[in-house]
């Protein structure tokens, strides 16, 4: 179904991006982002990449979509940082390199996000740019970011709950549940 509509996304730097138009609409569900005294409500629509929060009684669930695996990793990272309301300081950038053994795609996603959580908690860093190199059975990641300015929420872990990267006609889609 072709739908023309408005879209928005809020990134972990706190800015909100509005857009118009998309090819199709997966579903229309209320999406909510709250920060301080300002609240944005609206509808989330499918752009080429994106994420949205799914209702979950106790924990946090994100639906993430992207045209390919590396884009899915990056978009999931953005979504995770947004959920934790992690913001980075302006100023000197830092980079980190790490490797992830490539077993299956779901484990790769969990390991990648777990590594970012660790960098957040252990080194106080938020990463917002990535380069990925698939080298045999290893994913080599180079990430750039900056120290955390503030963080409102604690994410305990990335879970495997119902984790399955689906290939759809629109690209890759995954639902991620975080323990908070």
């Amino acid at each position: 179904m072709f739908t023309l509509t408005t879209t928005y996304q809020r990134n972990y730097k706190g800015s909100v991006t509005w857009g118009v138009g998309c090819d199709f609409q997966l579903e229309v569900l209320p999406f909510f982002v709250g920060i301080g005294k300002i609240r944005y409500t609206g509808k989330t629509m499918v752009t080429e990449t994106g994420y949205r929060e799914i209702e979950h009684t106790a924990d946090w669930e994100l639906e993430v979509w992207a045209p390919n695996l590396s884009s899915l990793l990056e978009t999931a990272a953005r979504g995770m940082y947004a959920l934790a309301q992690m913001q980075l300081v302006d100023g000197e950038r830092e980079s980190r390199e790490f490797e992830i053994p490539f077993g299956d795609r779901e484990s790769l996603l969990v390991d990648f996000l777990a590594e970012l959580l660790y960098l957040g908690e252990g080194e106080g860093l938020v990463m917002d740019e990535f380069s990925f190199t698939f080298d045999g059975n290893t994913l080599k990641v180079r990430a750039w970011g900056a120290p955390i300015k503030n963080q409102s929420k604690e994410i305990k872990a990335v879970t495997y709950h119902r984790l399955q990267i689906r290939e759809t006609e629109f690209g890759l889609v995954v639902n991620l549940v975080f323990d908070v």
């Binding site: 909510f32 409500t41 209702e55 979950h56 009684t57 106790a58 946090w60």
Partner: peptide
């Protein structure tokens, strides 16, 4: 035991 999601609560 929770009965409402966190996002719903914040709304």
């Amino acid at each position: 035991g929770r009965t409402m999601s966190r996002s719903q609560a914040k709304k």
